[in-house]
């Protein structure tokens, strides 16, 4: 069973609808036992870093997610859910994240011609050629964000250019993150979710 972690994140229902469309059964839950028994986990998210992290902690979900990752359960963070995977964020002060991928979340630079938040479609440059997501090369996905992950290249599967290189798909072993919204990125987005389910959860072709 695929579990969408329930912590009142804004895009939860649209993420669920995308899996429904694919015919993939999902369960929306905050129950630790159910999360730990899942084949795969989705961490959605829209909004600010600190209150989201606070909600995870209040529900005891931070330790549950870390435990599931240690059990090698594939985890996919989406948008803010992806940013929560990193060690820290400087959004409205310094805040600790889940620390599942080395790196920190910092503000997009203010530069002429680049409106912040980045709101719209941007083109993926593939960095890891042998990734199961290699089909995102030169494909556009839909972004809404003001902060981005500053991390080592070895964790970056694909990136987009927004005055700085912005990691779009990241991976550290069984932990995956998407800065864009796959549930709003048309066919490519749907294919990414499908690939996560088919290739990573049920085949484990992740190379790790």
């Amino acid at each position: 069973m695929l579990t969408i972690i329930d912590y009142d994140a804004g895009n939860t229902y649209n993420v669920k609808k995308a899996f429904d469309f694919l015919g993939v059964k999902t369960r929306l839950t905050a129950d630790p036992a159910e999360i730990l028994a899942s084949r795969g986990l989705i961490l959605p998210g829209v909004g600010a870093f600190a209150p989201a992290m606070q909600t995870l902690r209040t529900r005891g979900l931070d330790t549950v997610i870390k435990k599931a990752v240690m059990q090698k359960t594939p985890l996919l963070g989406i948008c803010l859910g992806m940013q929560l995977l990193f060690e820290s964020s400087s959004e409205y002060g310094e805040h600790k994240g889940l620390g599942l991928i080395p790196g920190k979340v910092i503000a997009l630079p203010r530069k002429k011609g680049y409106k912040v938040p980045q709101m719209g479609w941007n083109e993926n440059e593939l960095i890891q050629k042998n990734s199961v997501f290699s089909f995102v090369a030169q494909q556009y996905t839909y972004f809404v964000h003001s902060f981005y992950a500053d991390c080592d290249n070895k964790y970056i599967v694909s990136r987009v250019d927004y005055s700085v290189p912005v990691p779009a798909i990241v991976q550290n072993k069984n932990v995956y993150g998407l800065q864009f919204h796959p549930e709003k990125s048309g066919n490519v987005g749907i294919k990414i979710l499908q690939t996560f389910v088919k290739e990573i959860i049920y085949n484990d072709n992740s190379g790790n």
Partner: peptide, 8 residues
């Protein structure tokens, strides 16, 4: 619409 169309 949001059940079958995946764009903003």
């Amino acid at each position: 619409v949001s059940r079958r169309v995946f764009m903003p």
